[in-house]
Design a protein around this nucleic acid. Structure first.
Lengths: 242, 242
DNA sequence: CGCTATCTTGAATCCCTTCAAGTCGCGTGG
DNA sequence: CCACGCGACTTGAAGGGATTCAAGATAGCG
């Protein structure tokens, strides 16, 4: 599973170059990072790390999707985040992994040894500034998800989730209107704080009401985005119709 | 409401000096911060800022408690965090306030102009590093709360909340076993994703089962911490009995 | 073409909410 | 001092949305 990947060993051509932790680094600093990094890949379904593991690496998602989750003693699972390209796995100055990370699709990571990373971050002030920004953005997302988990009805959660997929899941083919659900019904349930049966029922309801059409079980087209937005329980945010 | 406060104008004697954003700053840097800061106080119940306001200041809580919350169009409220001493309100590089902030108790903030703060943070690399750490800690807390909101039963949520109060709400009198609920039943409900009636019922159940005793409606003593921990649905974490 | 995992649908149950009184605590003013 | 009033809290009963349990349908894959 470890192809040479020479083409992307150059950070300048990396697909997440503009958005990742390394964004806005100057040339010499980028080079320091480039020397220390290595690419790692996992296949869909593979565990990447478990809660309680000693934290040895810090990585960025280059392509693919992973889930961040917590499993309770009795087996209940809550997914607390989806890790998409440019998202970070791990953190400096902490010895233990806090949440399980699992590859949802095939995934490629840009990885650093934790100690290397800690040295680099001390040496490059713009890095910790960028990491602070990214952590604060994640914090906002997490808090918005808390609103969903604490207060939204099942149909509102589904609408919010489909909108999330539309916005963040931007495929490689921006011309086609088809979106792909990266998660199974059960994984969606664990992300939305519901059961897989409820997910299925709510999706059927959306389908019957004509708001979305399903090309296959995992692929859908949004026929009425305004209706979705309305059902999500959020105001249109900044994304109003023009 | 603006007493002189001269005693605490010196950062070295500030009660949150060891834990706040300014922790581990060297002497000269601390002085730079000290010049720019000012103290601001609010009374219990006062709004501090609303979602959508332009973000003009960055502050740390010095004493007291505030809530961070989001209100949906139809009035549903979710509290997404409690701001306790050393917690930060606001963030650099962002023009707008994202969540409502309300004083729960009388509260004192150490406040900076946003532009001053942004200059300071660029000038002091240890600051952005510290802010990164604090943001990542908050992110962990938010994600653990997501597990509570997504997967825990009402009685587990109450147990978790009382444990939170025991740990973070540490009063000025460490010798006495009495803890104080900073929130009303309704505020607790909005934090735990429940209704105030459910809160009341679950507290009564805890009282009847002898796990906690209520000195008054807001003051309680934990009689059986192990039972609380067990009910919270979390494993004992690192905080096992010695 | 059949096997298995995933998904859908139905029916019964349950936990939490909603609606509706009632109680408690506390400050005010008679 | 105590009646009064108001906000916060408690408790009960009915209702509802999501879960649980249980089949059945569908799709992907050898």
């Amino acid at each position: 599973m470890n192809a040479p990947l020479r083409l992307q060993d150059n950070c300048a051509t990396c697909p997440i170059h503009h958005t990742a932790l390394c964004a806005h680094q100057n040339g010499p600093d980028l080079q320091k990072l480039g020397i220390k990094k290595r690419y790692v890949t996992y296949k869909a379904g593979d565990p990447i790390q478990w809660r309680g593991d000693t934290l040895t690496h810090i990585s960025s998602v280059v392509s693919g999707v992973a889930s961040l989750s917590r499993t309770m003693e009795d087996g209940r699972v809550q997914v607390v985040g989806l890790l998409m390209p440019s998202d970070i796995i791990g953190r400096p100055d902490r010895g233990e992994v806090e949440f399980d990370v699992t590859a949802i699709t095939d995934i490629k990571l840009c990885q650093f040894n934790k100690t290397d990373f800690e040295d680099l971050i001390l040496d490059m002030p713009r890095m910790s500034h960028r990491m602070m920004e990214m952590a604060l953005d994640e914090l906002n997302l997490a808090r918005e998800w808390m609103v969903l988990l604490g207060r939204k009805k099942a149909h509102e959660r589904l609408a919010s989730f489909l909108l999330l997929i539309m916005r963040r899941g931007r495929t490689d083919r921006p011309w086609d209107q088809t979106h792909t659900l990266p998660l199974s019904r059960e994984q969606m349930a664990n992300f939305l704080g519901l059961t897989l049966e409820t997910i299925s029922r709510q999706l059927s309801k959306l389908r019957r009401s004509g708001v979305v059409t399903f090309v296959s079980q995992r692929q859908f087209v949004v026929e009425d985005e305004a209706a979705l937005l309305h059902q999500s329980g959020d105001e249109g945010d900044i994304l109003c119709v023009a």
